[in-house]
């Protein structure tokens, strides 16, 4: 079944790169949605079914960790896999994300292969 994917990053450049990486994977893709922050992402998640979220951490309005907490705290969304992709490299941030229920964590700079490997384990 085709999977709708939501990419959340305040950088349009990163959203574009991740779109390209996603299209290179064997993940059966439906619609690829984009959001520039956590607020916009939550609004999209509540409006239509999404099977995978790729999210940055450091974003305006609502950051990626707050978004993750909101997703895990919402009955209809809590089982959606969330892969964090971020420059936040400290062990504390990684642990915080994993404790909040992140499905995986990739540090920027990343290669397409790193993203693909993580997705294989998640989807």
């Amino acid at each position: 079944m085709a999977l709708n994917v939501l990419i959340v990053d305040d950088s349009a450049a990163i959203r574009k790169i991740l779109q390209r990486v996603l299209r290179q994977t064997e993940v059966p893709l439906g619609e690829i949605l984009e959001a520039g922050d956590g607020v916009e992402a939550l609004s999209l998640l509540k409006a239509q079914p999404v099977g995978l979220v790729l999210s940055d951490v450091n974003m305006p309005n609502m950051d990626g960790l707050q978004l993750l907490a909101e997703i895990r705290g919402t009955e209809s969304l809590k089982s959606v896999p969330v892969l964090m992709i971020t420059t936040e490299g400290s062990q504390n941030k990684v642990m915080e994300a994993l404790n909040l229920g992140a499905s995986g964590y990739v540090r920027k700079p990343f290669t397409a292969e790193q993203i693909k490997e993580k997705l294989v384990g998640i989807v």
Binding site: S11, T86, T87, E88, G89, S90
Partner: peptide, 26 residues
């Protein structure tokens, strides 16, 4: 801007190892 974010993010992570949590602007 995103390339800069990645470079400064690396510096921030190194600083955090010695000094503790820090914030990064957009």
């Amino acid at each position: 801007a995103e390339l800069t974010n990645m470079v400064v993010g690396g510096l921030k992570t190194a600083l955090e190892e010695d000094l503790g949590p820090m914030g990064l602007s957009i």
